[in-house]
Design a protein around this nucleic acid. Sequence first.
DNA 1: AGTTCCCCAATAGTATACAATATGAGCCAT
DNA 2: ATGGCTCATATTGTATACTATTGGGGAACT
Lengths: 245, 245
Amino acid sequence: MTQEPSGGLDGLGSAQRAYQLIRSSIIEGRYRAGQRLIEGRIGEEFSLSRTPVREALRLLEAEGLVLSIRNRGAIVRPVSPKEVIDLYELRARLESLGAERAATRATDAGIAELDAAIAAFDAAIPATDHIELTENRILSQANSRFHDAVIEMADHARLSQLMARTVDIPLVFQAFRVFTREERVRSNVFHRLIRDALEHGEAARAGALMSEHILMGRDSLVARLDEAQVKDALFLGASGEASSG
Amino acid sequence: MTQEPSGGLDGLGSAQRAYQLIRSSIIEGRYRAGQRLIEGRIGEEFSLSRTPVREALRLLEAEGLVLSIRNRGAIVRPVSPKEVIDLYELRARLESLGAERAATRATDAGIAELDAAIAAFDAAIPATDHIELTENRILSQANSRFHDAVIEMADHARLSQLMARTVDIPLVFQAFRVFTREERVRSNVFHRLIRDALEHGEAARAGALMSEHILMGRDSLVARLDEAQVKDALFLGASGEASSG
DNA sequence: AGTTCCCCAATAGTATACAATATGAGCCAT
DNA sequence: ATGGCTCATATTGTATACTATTGGGGAACT
């Protein structure tokens, strides 16, 4: 129930399945920062042998979600506040590049997809600041839909790969949990502004808006990094060893 | 001696060794674009079992050097001219960010390292346009030393990882082969300009210079993409299937 | 001759077995 | 009591064995 028994990922190899399962467990916080990821145990948990689990862990390590030390195993990579800030700065640059390129390559279909994503985002904004896991998933998904569509229009294979695989994601997912309703609304305002800039082929504006959009998200998140709860929710490196007792 | 029998990579795991060996084989062109990378064969070649080879291939896939299709195996990823251009644009942005950050974080030790790299680069420039593999290695190494030092000063862990692992490298290595002597000299002129901007903390200039430096490299490379030999040397996607007959 | 189908060889995907390494507990000496 | 040593155990690293998938070649048929 809280698990995803084949959440649409049948027909995949065991390794892919392991990858998706572990990944979502990390992103959504079921595996906490610093927690050890023991190949054998995870294998049991998902009824797989160590081989595909190991492969998945290595991929996640390349993505930066997992930290592993030779002969000692892997843990969920803790993220420091500095790293959050740096990651958002990086993401701002990358997506800004994506937006600039998208502006000169915009298609009707692409703009339509942006509109759809914007509508979905609007529909997914709850009335309150507090947000449930399910609501967060939907909101986060609508947000991804928008950003993915922009990157798609940028027509830059490696940039897409980088955005999808290398730059955060867990941060983005968790970010929406701590945003206020106002901040969520503001996010979509910027989505609309970016959309318009893209439609009119205004590359510089699109890039600047995207950058601003992301840095605003960063600031909202950073403003809440002091709250202990938030730290925990975002897996900031309180850990090392989680004193389980 | 064209092989690297343990080129300083003893004391590493088999997987690491496999990774380094395959990687350098791709970067230096011993494995050509489109060539199949069969786990078993590579295992034999390096006296390893399939397991670590497989792990290495997966890492290289994440890096973008290898393309693999489920149940069909891996090949050396061919690179199209468009991709070369896009990759350089991406690299320009990333390194530009690195330079901007480095400007506000410069240390004496870091500047000293830049000076050392610049001196090494000067020393490595041959008198002629033509360049031997060994000379290219040394030149490329000096160049990496400079760029690594800048990124190091940027103090951005993920950015470092991205530069090291995700953005090209094979392109950079091959680029020096097709540069003229004049272009190599010009490269180091920009290295000096960047160094000075960093020393004086001028972030915007450092970023702009770095961007220009990389885009100039791109243009030099692109200008030679038509020559059939060069295409081959850079592994551009002539392939797919090399019509051997 | 061309086309289809089936079977086989090659290869990737996964599981298991074995080897190497690291950590912690308990013991001994001081 | 404390510090260091040894060994047991848990876990990773690597090799091998087994299974599944794919692509190609040849036989049979049209």
